[in-house]
Design a protein around this nucleic acid. Structure first.
Length: 217
DNA sequence: GCCCAGGTGGGTA
DNA sequence: TACCCACATGGG
């Protein structure tokens, strides 16, 4: 089923690219962005990311040397700045401990092992961990976030947990690049529906009148 | 004004 | 395990 959803979305958005969708390509910027976007719009997260860049803090070592108070002020536009600044410090520290982003990307540890380590960091939950693994560390994983679960529910009527959706997708798609694209496409699809400006985003997202998927799956 | 956004952690039953 | 709530800002 997920393979078919993936191919349908690929046909619906033929010019989709992960890099354009993310807006940033640097691995550490994507790691920071994964934390900043928690329960926030990408627009707000992006403002905070720009401010980190201006402050010269998109380097793990530089960021790890900041105080939580200063960091909170810099990332303010993303909201939840107290929690997010502390989480960013822990994340930067974790990267530094591993000898930097490049070393981390070359590590031979299993994806599950890296995921376990990320989840030990307070402020990094399943979705943030999977986003970091997939988009910054190029690991074959995917988040079973709200968009994905809602899509599944609209198509099948089944309500699955984060981990259930994630496992279901991983059972069908194993290539890191496919998983990165699938998740981005799901979000793009949601945005396309939202662009119709229906009453509420959460209501119009994958609404019953959505023909992209219902017609072709 | 009011609701919501690509969550997380701590508490309670 | 399954809900409930606080956490903060900006846009529609």
């Amino acid at each position: 089923m997920w393979k078919r959803i993936y191919h349908t979305l690929e046909r619906t958005f033929p010019s989709f690219t992960v890099d354009e969708w993310w807006g940033v390509t640097e691995p550490f910027a994507r790691m920071a962005g994964s934390v900043l976007v928690q329960n926030t719009t990408w627009i707000n997260a992006s403002k905070a990311l720009d401010r980190l860049e201006e402050a010269g803090l998109l380097e793990p070592a530089a960021l790890a040397g900041e105080t939580v108070e200063r960091l909170a002020e810099v990332i303010r536009p993303a909201g939840f700045q107290r929690a997010k600044s502390a989480a960013l410090l822990r994340l930067a520290g974790w990267v530094v401990e591993h000898g930097g982003v490049d070393r981390l990307r070359r590590l031979t540890d299993s994806t599950d092992e890296l995921r376990r380590q990320l989840l030990l960091l307070k402020g990094i939950g399943p979705e943030t961990a999977d986003t970091i693994l997939a988009y910054a560390l190029t690991r074959p994983t995917i988040s079973g976030d709200a968009y994905t679960r809602r899509l599944w529910q609209r198509l099948t009527g089944e309500v699955l947990s984060y981990e259930q959706v994630r496992r279901a997708i991983l059972a069908e798609l194993t290539e890191a690049e496919d998983l990165r694209r699938l998740h981005g496409l799901i979000v793009e699809h949601g945005k396309a529906i939202c662009a119709k400006r229906l009453p509420r985003c959460s209501a119009c997202l994958f609404a019953d009148d959505c023909r992209y998927l219902h017609d072709s799956i």
